[in-house]
Simulated assay, not measured.
Amino acid sequence: MATLVEQIKASVKEAMKAKDKQRLGTLRLIQSEFKRIEVDERIDIDDARATAIMDKMLKQRRDSVEQYQNAGRDELAEQELAEIAVISEFLPEPLSADEIDKMIQDAIAASGASGMQAMGAVMATIKPQMQGRADMAEVSKRVKALLN
């Protein structure tokens, strides 16, 4: 199976052949973000890091959509929604609410957490498993609720 970076490169070629400018633009944004991090941190991006990067890009776009809609700029919100759709194609299948709750409860049990002071340990345990598959802000709220 090809790595995430290789899949995106192949998708860029497909978008160029299909003359799909909007998709191509989004894929190039992803590639440029990968390249920026590779240069800044002098590393090769693996699938876990690529997922984290795209998850962050997704979160930024969701925030932008909300701001554009509040400002009445629907055409800009639609552009961001189109980018969200393309980025989401490469992320793993999202977790259901039940799966998230089970993973949180398992992490709490495994760490022996019994209060808010253990929240960092619980989040450190579940974040790698949920990266790109769940909204971490929402997961954090659920962890707080269960630890209180």
Rank of each mutant, 00 (worst) to 15 (best):
A113F: 02
K127W: 00
L147H: 04
L76V: 02
Q117W: 08
A113E: 04
D20F: 14
M130D: 02
G120Q: 00
T51H: 06
V65K: 02
M103Q: 10
L76E: 15
G112M: 08
D63I: 09
K13S: 01
L95E: 07
Q67K: 12
S11A: 15
R73V: 08
I87E: 09
I37V: 12
P94K: 06
N70I: 10
F34T: 03
I53S: 06
L58N: 00
S32D: 15
K141V: 11
K102V: 08
I43D: 05
A145H: 06
E38M: 09
E38C: 04
F34A: 02
R142I: 08
A109W: 05
Q69M: 14
K127V: 01
D46N: 13
I53C: 09
K17T: 07
R42L: 09
S114D: 08
D106S: 11
E75I: 05
Q105S: 14
E41P: 11
M103E: 15
E99I: 05
K35E: 13
A145M: 08
D74G: 03
Q131I: 03
Q129T: 01
I87N: 05
S64W: 04
Q131S: 03
M123G: 01
K144D: 11
D101Q: 12
V39S: 05
D135L: 05
T125R: 08
L58F: 12
S96L: 07
R61T: 01
G115A: 09
A121T: 15
K102N: 11
Q7T: 11
E66M: 10
R73C: 11
M16W: 14
A10S: 12
E93A: 07
K17G: 04
I104M: 08
G115M: 10
R133S: 02
R36Q: 06
M16L: 11
I126H: 01
R61Y: 14
K102Q: 15
A71R: 12
L81S: 04
L146S: 10
A107D: 06
K21D: 09
D55G: 09
Q22A: 09
A137E: 08
Q31A: 07
A10G: 00
G72Y: 14
L146N: 04
E83G: 00
I126Y: 00
K9C: 02
L24E: 12
A97Q: 09
K59S: 08
R36I: 10
A113G: 04
R62I: 10
S88W: 14
Q105M: 12
A113T: 01
A134D: 08
R133Q: 06
E83H: 14
L27V: 05
A121N: 07
I100E: 14
I104F: 05
F90T: 00
L58R: 15
Q22F: 13
L24T: 01
Q79G: 07
